[in-house]
């Protein structure tokens, strides 16, 4: 079958549309984080995987390819949502070009799934709109919804976190992109109070932004704790604090 040898989605096969966010540094960092944690992911054997805000489909396609290399087809159920209908068309084309499948939903974060999918998601990936912008740009129609994050870039993130807490299974993992300006250490403390441990899987500085990909899992999940040397939120805070000079100077645009 086509695509069986690929580890991640191929850029030349990723579809596009003027109103859809193209794979960029943040998308690559998220996929790199999944790749870096691939051994754990394969052991984890997620049955239900959800991406919130799939955009071009680069991440969900990469995830499906990554898991399919080791786990036979249809062993995992992939769901992807976006608030932008064009993004879902593009994601559908990207998936098809790589010979993998996911169920697509036009939804606000996970609207419609909150009740029945609660406590069932083993793996959730999110590249949220994290760029600090004026409040009125948040959730605007079209491509701006892909990045506009309101004050500190937290408007949508702060709605995604409780949704993730509701949807994740007892062994569920969340990988999320954050920007230093989003105050990731505060996000980790917030999730810590809900019972989640966290660690930074990938940290990347580009000309424009400092990105962290953070993995969250329920603190009682021994398997994950055992395979992750740096586990508690406190450690993440420690490691973030060492990057504080950048945090205080950052006020850039996307």
């Amino acid at each position: 079958m086509e695509g069986i040898g690929w580890k991640t989605a191929q850029i030349r096969l990723v579809s596009s549309h003027p109103e859809v966010y193209e794979p960029c540094d943040d998308s690559f960092a998220l996929v790199d984080a999944l790749l870096a944690d691939r051994t754990n992911l394969l052991l984890h054997r997620p049955a239900i995987c959800l991406e919130v805000g799939c955009g071009s489909g680069y991440v969900i396609t990469s995830l499906a390819l990554m898991l399919r290399r080791q786990i036979p087809s249809s062993a995992a159920y992939f769901l992807a949502t976006d608030i932008n209908p064009h993004a879902l068309s593009v994601t559908g084309e990207t998936l098809a070009a790589h010979g993998v499948e996911a169920e697509l939903l036009l939804a606000d974060i996970a609207s419609g799934l909150e009740d029945r999918l609660a406590g069932k998601v083993d793996l959730m990936v999110v590249n949220p709109p994290y760029v600090p912008t004026p409040e009125d740009e948040v959730g605007a129609p079209g491509i701006a919804a892909a990045w506009a994050g309101g004050e500190n870039g937290r408007r949508v993130i702060d709605r995604i976190l409780p949704a993730a807490d509701r949807l994740l299974s007892s062994r569920g993992w969340l990988y999320m992109v954050t920007l230093t300006a989003n105050d990731p250490s505060q996000i980790c403390r917030l999730m810590g109070r809900k019972g989640y441990a966290s660690r930074i899987v990938v940290q990347r500085s580009t000309e424009e932004e400092n990105l962290q990909i953070i993995k969250f899992w329920r603190d009682a999940d021994e398997e994950s704790a055992a395979s992750s040397p740096t586990t508690i939120a406190g450690r993440v805070i420690e490691s973030l604090t060492s990057h504080l000079p950048r945090l205080s100077s950052f006020r850039g645009t996307h």
Binding site: L79, E103, S111, G112, L113, E114, D115, R116, L117
Partner: peptide, 21 residues
């Protein structure tokens, strides 16, 4: 949309109590 997805969806309109199936 597969029926697996249908099985995971409910109507979440404000005020709706039984939005499933």
């Amino acid at each position: 949309m597969r029926l697996l997805t249908h099985n995971m969806l409910s109507s979440n309109i404000k005020g709706v109590v039984n939005g499933f199936p």
